[in-house]
Design a protein around this nucleic acid. Sequence first.
DNA 1: AGATATTTTGAACGATGTTCATGAATGAGG
DNA 2: CCTCATTCATGAACATCGTTCAAAATATCT
Lengths: 205, 205
Amino acid sequence: MVKTTERRDRQREALVLAAEKAIAEKGLSGLKARDLADAIGCSLGAIYNLVQDMDELVLRVGSRTLARLDDALAEATKGSASASSGDATDTLVAIAQTYCAFARENLQLWRTLFEHRMAEGSIVPEWAISEQMTMFRYILAPLRALQPRASEPELILLSRTLFSAVHGVVMLGLEEKLVAVPAAALDGQIEALVRVIGKGLTAGA
Amino acid sequence: MVKTTERRDRQREALVLAAEKAIAEKGLSGLKARDLADAIGCSLGAIYNLVQDMDELVLRVGSRTLARLDDALAEATKGSASASSGDATDTLVAIAQTYCAFARENLQLWRTLFEHRMAEGSIVPEWAISEQMTMFRYILAPLRALQPRASEPELILLSRTLFSAVHGVVMLGLEEKLVAVPAAALDGQIEALVRVIGKGLTAGA
DNA sequence: AGATATTTTGAACGATGTTCATGAATGAGG
DNA sequence: CCTCATTCATGAACATCGTTCAAAATATCT
């Protein structure tokens, strides 16, 4: 009995990895249940013993993507942890560019985080919600340095706004359909934006 | 013969309106060919005499949405056309909040502008590309006032970056999947963001 | 070994966008 | 008006999805 759950867990992991590969290569719309069954060598119906439905599978892939993104951001902020070394704005620029680089290098998986919608009637499970947007916390420390007089709730709201702003530039910049900011100019524009915001936050009043 | 094309045009318009209504009420994923056939009183196959495929229909709806958005932005910038009255930052705030209000009031139609992807192999037709993102031009004049020394290409790039930043805040703010931002807070954060950027742009060097 | 419980299977189902043979409607020529 | 040719509308059929489920296969227990 313990053997079956173990094997199931291993197969579920194989399923998630196959799904991740499919999304990375062909996008969210390229994820097909029948292809996955072939990929991990099981029948079509067996997938639904490993996973409730496709939504759960996409959420599990998203969970892995978020974890890797978190790692990348942790690495980027490692040096300036205590907010003592270097300018806080530099840290914010580093975070933003790390985010942009991650999105570029994991384009389809990163897009899936925002493209995916649960099937009508389904709701996002708690475990998936809780791990979303832990990214804000990387922005919090540098922001506190820039706005020492702001309250904690204000800082949390601001960190979310700042993240969203950078996210928007990256999102539209990496969209091939409507060219907002040319992909080549993306890094420069993101740095410029964050520096302007940094300047605006430290400037008087 | 002229009669048939006329009737076709009228029926095509009815189709687009029905599609717009369906998207507005149920989102892009609620757009069904069979429902549309029922709505405009024609057979399923007849739709494909009016429109090449569903993609074209979505693009036609998007065209209407962009036109209405353009109208709203024109209205918002009407007063401060000559960049003489009022602060340029105030104009930028007004534009951003108009954009946010439009997104809120046309949530599903606005989302469709960015959610929609052409079917694999299809490419966005020229007429749809040309009308995309003419919104940038509203930002250009106030930005020029804030950055009189910037070159025109720099200003164009900056206008796209600024638009994208506000777009990101609106997009994530109106997403119900990740913890929703209260409506009032969203307006406040957008104003704060644009004012910070305005301050950053005018602050020395 | 036999009985019982569990799991795997893949055919079948219900949606959905799209196509196409068929038949109806339309318009032109006599 | 009738006839014929062209055009158009129709909805059944098809391909492709995710999902379900009865039955077969397998495992577990006594």
